[in-house]
Amino acid sequence: MAQVSRIGSFASVAALLATTALAQSYPERQITMVVPFAAGGPTDTVGRLIGEKMSEELGQQIIVENVGGAGGTLGAAQVAEAEPDGYTILLHHIGMATSETLYRELPYETLEAFATIGLVTEVPMTVVARADFEPADMAAFVAYVKENADTITMANAGIGAASHLCGMLLMQALDAPIVTVPYRGTGPAMTELVGGQIDIMCDQTTNTTEQIQGGTIKAYAVTTPERLDLFPDLPTASEAGLQGLDVTVWHGIYAPAGTPQEAIDRLSSALQAALADPAIAEQLAELGTAPSPAEDATPAALETRLNEEIERWRPIIEAAGVYAD
């Protein structure tokens, strides 16, 4: 027992020393960025792009560790339990807010377990359909889907996926119970949409842009408040008279709660600097998205967003009655 307490007090002294020394020296070794999804996915891509630029700013390597599983909650749980020393951070998307409701047995308290660092990017979504879907434009789409709701099928990439969230919003906005068909990931869902096996889907531009431009699928609207430079001809949902279909897949960077303020500030300023880099803007534009402005890449902005989104999705998910555990 004495042994333990001696180690304990030694540890706390060491931690104290570390904190005071941190201001000048952080970061002094490589930082692990946990991406709670498989390597090669869209979130992983955002993480690697931004991680590389932030490494240049910080003068220390940020290495991406993919801890996939359970809709991103396994990776998040791992970061929640990690030492709050600034050397383990998390890159997560909108799922950070929705899993609070989607998972009834979440192993962490989202708002208590993490410190926010900043928003990275917001990926817009598009309402798309198979290439030979009948309606000519968004107004016709709304009317057609409402009329034929019981014969129209809508794909999504699984519970909690962006396409699932957007699909729930779309059904709520249309007030039409469309038949939902889940797939295991975006790849198979998109294949069947291109193949005309299924009618409609709502997914991130990351996944749809190339297919829309290639003419293999048809786009009707974007889910942002304003039109996108990428698709100047596509109306917003509200332009077409569909209210409430306003959703983006926002990505944020987090650290375990209790991470020293110096480290948070350093990471946040590195994030802002990275996002200001024209090369990053160009690469994100390829994905149909843009870097978050500097005022959003702050701890306060992400914290506000996280709070808002948790509250926003709670009633929608509860109304749909779909849980991931």
């Binding site: 996915g41 190339e210 390829e286 994905l287």
Partner: peptide
Amino acid sequence: PLLTLGIPANPVMALMVGAMIIQGIVPGPN
């Protein structure tokens, strides 16, 4: 399917898509 549609057929292909995107090529039908 990856070359003609830009859709990965298995986890290995998904990794390759990720690599393409990081290189600034978004794979698609074009």
